[in-house]
């Protein structure tokens, strides 16, 4: 069952990478990177159990944190962080 789960996570990683390469918008790529990061955390946890070395979990924790930091960073520096008001609201005024 562990091995099946590992394979499933690997397949999901491949699909996420394809979306990250294809795009087309910036947000699709961020989404793909985010998903890829989560899947890497899962893969590392599973690998720790498959290979019988649960200390791999430390690395998985670091990944979970780093993943969040890079998503915040990419939003902050892609110039999309300071939100423009959506057009619907300006129409109401």
């Amino acid at each position: 069952m562990l091995i099946a789960a590992t394979l499933a996570v690997l397949v999901a990683m491949i699909l996420a990478i394809i979306r990250g390469i294809v795009g087309p918008t910036l947000y699709d790529r961020i989404l793909a990177v985010n998903m890829f990061g989560t899947k890497t955390v899962l893969l590392l946890s599973l690998l720790g159990f498959v290979m019988g070395r649960p200390e791999f979990l430390d690395i998985a924790i670091v990944y979970a944190l780093i993943n969040f930091i890079s998503v915040v960073g990419v939003l902050r520096y892609s110039g999309t962080f300071e939100l423009k008001q959506p057009s619907a609201e300006s129409k109401e005024e």
Binding site: M1, L2, A4, A5, L7, A8, V9, V11, A12, M13, I14, L15, A16, R19, L31, A32, M35, K39, L42
Partner: peptide, 15 residues
């Protein structure tokens, strides 16, 4: 684990 794997793959297909 089985449900998790299924959800993983379905998310991958979805994206």
């Amino acid at each position: 684990l089985l449900i998790g794997s299924f959800l993983c793959i379905s998310g991958g297909v979805g994206i």
